[in-house]
Amino acid sequence: MIEAHRLSKTFYAPRSAPIEAVREVSLSVEAGEILGLLGPNGAGKTTLLRMLATILTPTSGSCRVCAVPVSESPQAARAKIGFLSGNTRLYGRLTPRELLRYFGRLYGMDRDTIADRTEALSAMLGMGEFLDRRCDTLSTGQTQRVSIARVILHDPPVLILDEPTLGLDIMSSRTILDFIREARGREHAIIFSTHYMTEAELLCDRIGLIHEGRIHAMDTPANLYARTHTDNLQDAFLAMIGAEPATAEAGPDVS
């Protein structure tokens, strides 16, 4: 569902050296699979996900979403993607129903479909009581549910989630994590980034350890422990980034 081949992104800024945020990253995610990207701040997680979500143009390399080449037809690719970032808030002056209508129109859905879908999502996520209140009056948990509804409104086969639980309390994170798990059950391909180790351990089928723009290892949690002779992700991560990148690149799951 998601295939990336040697993706790189270099940022040019005036009066400073170019920054290689992502270097030659290749990965793939299948339907019904959750890939977690784990890495410290500034590792390149956000840049990588933004490239997959077509928001940034790669400096080199290519990627395909549902077999659609992203660089050539970004708009077609976007229609297949649901993108959520942890620091995304909503339009405060709209109600959730209006917000969903607005985004539905942007996704090219007709009014009836949007209305039906809104009802369905409202029932699924329990948004009935605040569907017609302005978004700036909603609690964090309610806001998260509206955000999720916005992401899956057009029923995308691919979900790209950039630190979706960033800064949330336990209850709100729980909503998101349940949603991710549930989406896997419905055969979505999910890639998400986080720097919470436990979250990744609990959810992910495979984990990519990313540091300084490179993927140092990508494997199931169990295999990662075995390779690094550790019993938790934190130690595994530290062991990996201390290791030679060459061994990581030769890892079995880097496609």
């Binding site: 933004r50 708009q75 993108f83 620091n87 995304t88 405060g92 985004f103 942007l106 916005r150």
Partner: peptide, 14 residues
């Protein structure tokens, strides 16, 4: 500031 820009950019609009 709201972080809605990237949401907007991720929709299939040019």
């Amino acid at each position: 500031e709201r972080g809605t820009f990237e949401t907007l950019l991720s929709t299939p609009t040019s």
